[in-house]
Design a protein around this nucleic acid. Structure first.
Lengths: 114, 114
DNA sequence: CCTCATGCTACAAATAACGTAGCGGTACGC
DNA sequence: GCGTACCGCTACGTTATTTGTAGCATGAGG
């Protein structure tokens, strides 16, 4: 049985096997808590891993550490000794890309529910 | 055992229990294949569910249908009879919010791999 | 030494995603 | 009618991921 998912999701996050980096990015960001983590780090300065867990609905430390490792690997998040986790300059640029999302969420929530 | 995750991820996608619609949106978009689906529908006109599955690395029909249902519920995607799935005007606005992401992915992929 | 907080890990149980197969429905050509 | 071939969608058993709880080693400050 081919492990398509495992191969696509676990390996080559940064890889552009398809030649389209956006796929790798979408892959990374599509994992649970990833978007939320980046969002929580948006402007609240460095957060300790535990504070981050609390901010993310008390997500389990297992996934949290997985995501943080992946995000560090991706150079979007860094752990500043004695400070906590924070976005790297690159991660902050990603946040900028998300800026329109907040505005969209507002108008989206006001939409009639189907 | 409290089902924090199930309660947070499954129910109230549109709900603003926290008063922050962005959380509901991040929740929805943080599920597997969701970002990818929206991306694949970006400009390729309507896609049949099977074509969409093919475009998404042959994701299993089970999750695909789940995601499509959620996205339809969220009024981001619609099924046009005889045509296929496509983004709603609202979904297209979301795509616009993602526009900077593509540019970011390009520069991100060129980053030194830690 | 004791307490507290940090980053991080172990492990079993619960949940979600997977792959395969197949359903009912609607066209087609024959 | 009958056979094919699509469509959207579902069942079901297997696999992978997430969850919740507990705990580790380390360091700071009493």
């Amino acid at each position: 049985m081919p492990k398509k998912y495992a191969a696509a999701q676990k390996a080559a996050v940064r890889g552009s096997r398809t030649g389209r980096p956006i796929m790798a990015l979408l892959d990374l960001l599509g994992r649970r808590w990833t978007l939320r983590i980046i969002w929580e780090l948006r402007d609240d300065g460095p957060l300790t891993s535990r504070a981050l867990r609390t901010a993310c609905n008390d997500a389990s430390p297992t996934v949290m550490q997985s995501r943080l490792s992946e995000l560090r690997e991706a150079a979007l998040v860094e752990l500043v000794a004695g400070e906590g986790y924070s976005l790297t300059p690159l991660g902050r640029e990603l946040m900028e890309s998300f800026q329109p999302l907040n505005r969209f969420a507002e108008q989206w929530s006001k939409q009639p529910t189907s």
